[in-house]
Design a protein around this nucleic acid. Structure first.
Lengths: 118, 118
DNA sequence: TACATTCTCAACCACTTGGTTGAAGAAGCG
DNA sequence: CGCTTCTTCAACCAAGTGGTTGAGAATGTA
């Protein structure tokens, strides 16, 4: 069950509620109650969403009286960006290299040539 | 059940096997059998992984005799990059001007189903 | 101390996910 | 046509997820 961090991060962001939380936390820190306000789910559910974000390293918590303010950790985004950039660039280059037809299905005489670059 | 695409994309990439497939597909197209080779799981499982990637818009399939070559669609990465860049930058700026006002929630009450989008 | 506020833990439940095996569809070859 | 190759569909199962409610921990306040 100990997934790698990248998996945890992607998994955490696969939920719209959690993405929305991240979006709001990018603007400012917030407490659990504040974060929960807009949603129609229980405080406990929000708390658990935050635990998922925390496990992914996307947020950290502190203590402020009874409150547990949540803070977005931007560094983790770099991890994702790094992964993304690498493969996006590779695919992009490859796309640029072959000047034909991918994705277009309207060819009447489909004679798929090899698209391997020389 | 019809999740938004961003959720499907993040969810698809939350699996290490699928991320590895994407990585390999960034180099070149491949058939199901070719993709399956390195992994110790059934061909059917690989086929289903590819369906997940396909539903997320990350790959497309064509037909080549009995084979169904898989092609990586780089455009979807832009979607993620856009999302990432936006909030990473916001958090970065905020980090830079580290005034950190807690408890200062603005009036934004977003619908959890929708991402923060302009 | 007693009480209110804020948040988390625990148990439960419906649904999804990622794997399995067996059967079947689709295309080429003898 | 029957047989082989490549791939998907279907049914099943264990484990995970996201919600619920109820209890309780942690802290500040009267």
């Amino acid at each position: 069950m100990p997934q790698d961090q990248l998996s945890r991060v992607f998994s955490a962001l696969a939920d719209p509620t959690r993405r929305d939380m991240v979006a709001r936390l990018a603007a400012t820190d917030a407490t659990v109650g504040e974060l929960a306000a807009p949603y129609d789910i229980s405080l406990q559910a929000v708390s658990r969403h935050l635990r998922v974000l925390g496990d992914a390293g996307l947020v950290t918590r502190t203590r402020q009286a009874q409150r547990r303010p949540v803070h977005l950790e931007a560094e983790v985004f770099d991890l994702m960006t790094k992964w993304l950039e690498r493969y996006r660039r590779e695919a992009d280059e490859r796309y640029r290299r072959l000047d034909a037809v991918l994705g277009e299905m309207d060819d009447a005489t489909p004679d798929p040539q090899e698209d391997h670059a020389p």
